[in-house]
Design a protein around this nucleic acid. Structure first.
Lengths: 224, 224
DNA sequence: ACTGTTGTTATACGACAGTATAACAACCAT
DNA sequence: ATGGTTGTTATACTGTCGTATAACAACAGT
């Protein structure tokens, strides 16, 4: 009877691995089924480490929420690309990224919904949500503004914010319902649906955004 | 030391009161905090009744989910009115109902999100969600079709369904983010935002739907 | 009134949750 | 090499969870 052999990890590595185990357990078994022991087992540690790194299980779950939204927004922002010279392509890519895998996944939506459901009971969750929502909204508003500027269509700041709110709602809703694969329509229709609807919301020509559906490569197809 | 005095209720009344207690507890304390004892206390019964009426706590919670979505869709459908002679007004009212109280409430969103978060772990939840989603989608599709017919604008069934999916996403997203009152914008801006965006998605004139924002009374203001 | 049925209460029980504590071993500094 | 630090394991403990069971009481049929 010997003790389990183990490896000392750096603070960041250990934390990250435990947070990922937390998310995995919640996604797979629900919040109820995500017990301290099960999470620890998945992270290949013992339950005592939770206290050592996060103080309590509740604090670890909260940290896992922050970790999740951080990953989600980073993923979407990266997918949109940094190419600022084609505002409409940038916006289109951003929208597409939000309604296609890996961002579109039942795992992500399950986790997200689970945490949203705790906001009302535990105010700490509200703070994280508010921040991530504001980030997303700001990102959208900037992109919309760029699109309008390129088309030399002046819009008031207020109208631009309204459009950002609406666009955010559209993206959120499509991401959500699209991820819970209910078999009511094929998920590959989502990008086209999203882009056409977004163009409508922004009063652009119907195909102004869906034009950019084709290119899958990182390199833009135009010469310059 | 005498026993608690009690009153025999009909099957439906008792069930409903226990389901409502379940929802209230989940909304207030989260799924973790909604223990069988706490729910029973709120319903003014003892925990043993859960077994008697639902077999198990898990089955009761599932029934509560069904009860919730039933209430939500009924509420929205009623608010849209039965007046089929003004398709655009009907659609507008339906949209407004979804982004204003009592449908817009953090309680409802908290509950909804909590249940959505369980879909992946417990397939029974997926069935309920799928059914309610389909109902909502069908409702929207019918309304959109009526609007287009009244404008004598022929649209293919496929295009109509795409618009319904997009509109549903918009409504879902705005309802969701609007309910979690994050203080980033005033909730009373939502109806106008939603109607304008919806008009855009359907390629209608920008104010085609928001025209119907004003009338609060049940009686339409036009003579006929 | 009385009696039978069953909705409802009261209580007990096993299981397992989260966590506090102490022993231990991996790694670093020397 | 070796000692010290502390990340990590192992275990025990307390509370409370869901639920099974038995006693009880409200109401209906007579």
């Amino acid at each position: 009877m010997s003790r389990k052999t183990f490896q000392r990890l750096s603070l960041d590595e250990r934390r990250r691995s435990m947070l990922e185990a937390t998310l995995e357990c919640i996604a797979q078994h629900g919040l109820d089924g995500a017990t301290a022991r099960r999470i620890a087992e998945r992270a290949n540690v013992t339950a005592g480490l939770i206290r050592h790194y996060f103080g309590s299980k509740e604090d670890m779950v909260l940290a896992a929420y922050g970790y999740l939204v951080g990953q989600l927004t980073m993923q979407a922002a990266q997918a949109s690309g940094q190419d600022a010279t084609h505002p409409e392509r940038r916006l289109a890519r951003f929208i597409i990224a939000n309604v296609t895998p890996p961002n579109l996944s039942d795992r992500n939506v399950s986790l997200w919904a689970t945490f949203i459901g705790r906001i009302r009971a535990l105010p700490s969750y509200a703070d994280i949500h508010r921040e991530s929502y504001r980030d997303f909204l700001d990102l959208l508003e900037t992109m919309i503004h760029a699109v309008m500027a390129a088309r030399q269509r002046p819009v008031s700041a207020e109208a631009c914010q309204d459009q950002a709110v609406a666009l955010n709602g559209l993206i959120d809703g499509l991401w959500l319902e699209g991820s819970l694969d209910h078999g009511l329509y094929a998920a590959d229709r989502l990008p086209r649906i999203a882009l056409t609807a977004a163009a409508g919301i922004l009063s652009l020509p119907a195909d102004a955004l869906s034009i950019h559906l084709e290119p899958h490569a990182d390199t833009p197809p135009d010469r310059n």
